[in-house]
């Protein structure tokens, strides 16, 4: 797929593509690039996150399009993971973390009081940095989501879901003969794909991935990246990565975070070839990181 093709497919929203002007705080930087897309799955407006006294995310607005992979890059501690965790309210599990601003999922504010986080997280599932299969069998790991959410009427249904999820995660052929083995016994790359299978078994709309390949070897990484490419057909994917190469390989759009600010959002090729912001350029040319 050519870079142009990807960019065209996204049909960037020209009006919102202009620089988004910060409205609060003097130390907040403006975002350069196209923060809005035409047909957003998730639309964030003026999101702020505080950890106690620390202002971790500063007034960020950003869209996630349907069927796109959005990569988030930036130096460590820049807030990209924190922002990712806002999208399915994982920050609720962190004490003294405060999130403000508007995050719309299909037009509905997920931070609103009457939104229940449980079905929300079933729609916006998450895959973590370190593979974290439950200490149960491979089958039980994948079946966990459908079971708790009551998605399957019968054991046969469940079998079907488990198989299809494992197939989608490109893991079926490797584990079909040992579904009853403990998930933690798999290799790192297999574990991570198992975690992805576990997430897609509940048919979410968005999958959040927090540095999913940082603990994996290059071959496993390649397999996971290929998987991401395939999953894009069905899900919106937001991936945080510390590797610019990976962002360039898997994503259509890339957002660059710096010290809690969203500096620049562009289609991936443009961001890496012609960054518009000095900080972005410094980062991708390796001046810091």
């Amino acid at each position: 797929m050519s870079p142009q093709g990807q960019a065209m497919a996204l049909k960037l929203d020209g009006a919102a593509g202009a620089a988004h002007v910060a409205t609060v705080g003097r130390d907040v930087r403006e975002t350069v690039g196209e923060i809005r897309v035409n047909d957003p799955r998730v639309r964030c407006t003026d999101v702020n996150v505080h950890y106690g006294d620390k202002h971790a995310i500063k007034n960020i607005s950003l869209d996630v399009g349907k069927g796109e992979v959005l990569a988030m890059i930036g130096p460590s501690g820049c807030g990209k993971s924190t922002f990712l965790r806002c999208l399915n309210r994982m920050n609720d599990t962190v004490r003294e973390c405060r999130v403000t601003g508007e995050i719309l999922l299909d037009g509905e504010d997920i931070n609103s009081r009457h939104i229940d986080v449980v079905p929300l997280r079933a729609r916006v599932a998450m895959v973590f940095q370190k593979p974290n299969p439950f200490p149960k069998s491979i089958y039980e790991n994948v079946a966990f989501g459908p079971r708790i959410h009551g998605l399957c009427e019968s054991k046969a249904d469940l079998d079907v879901v488990v198989e299809s999820s494992l197939r989608k995660a490109n893991l079926w052929d490797e584990v079909k003969d040992r579904l009853d083995d403990v998930g933690t016994g798999l290799s790192g790359g297999q574990q991570q794909r198992l975690c992805i299978a576990r997430a897609i078994a509940i048919e979410p709309e968005v999958i959040l991935m927090d540095e999913p390949c940082s603990a994996l070897d290059p071959i496993s990484t390649a397999k996971v990246e290929q998987l991401i490419e395939e999953l894009r057909q069905q899900f919106s994917i937001v991936i945080v990565t510390h590797s610019m190469q990976q962002a360039a390989r898997v994503s259509q759009r890339t957002a660059y975070f710096h010290m809690g600010d969203l500096i620049e959002v562009s289609e991936t090729d443009r961001l890496f070839i012609k960054p518009r912001h000095q900080l972005t350029e410094d980062y991708i040319t390796g001046r810091f990181g």
Binding site: H149, G150, L151, V160, S164, E203
Partner: peptide, 27 residues
């Protein structure tokens, strides 16, 4: 396990099922 594509209904339906089960799970 012959027809994995049909296993789950469309996303909206699965979401509806989740919603339907919520009252019990909350309790």
């Amino acid at each position: 396990m012959t027809n994995p594509g049909k296993a789950l209904p469309e996303g909206a339906t699965s979401f509806a099922r989740i919603q339907a089960g919520m009252a019990k799970r909350r309790a």
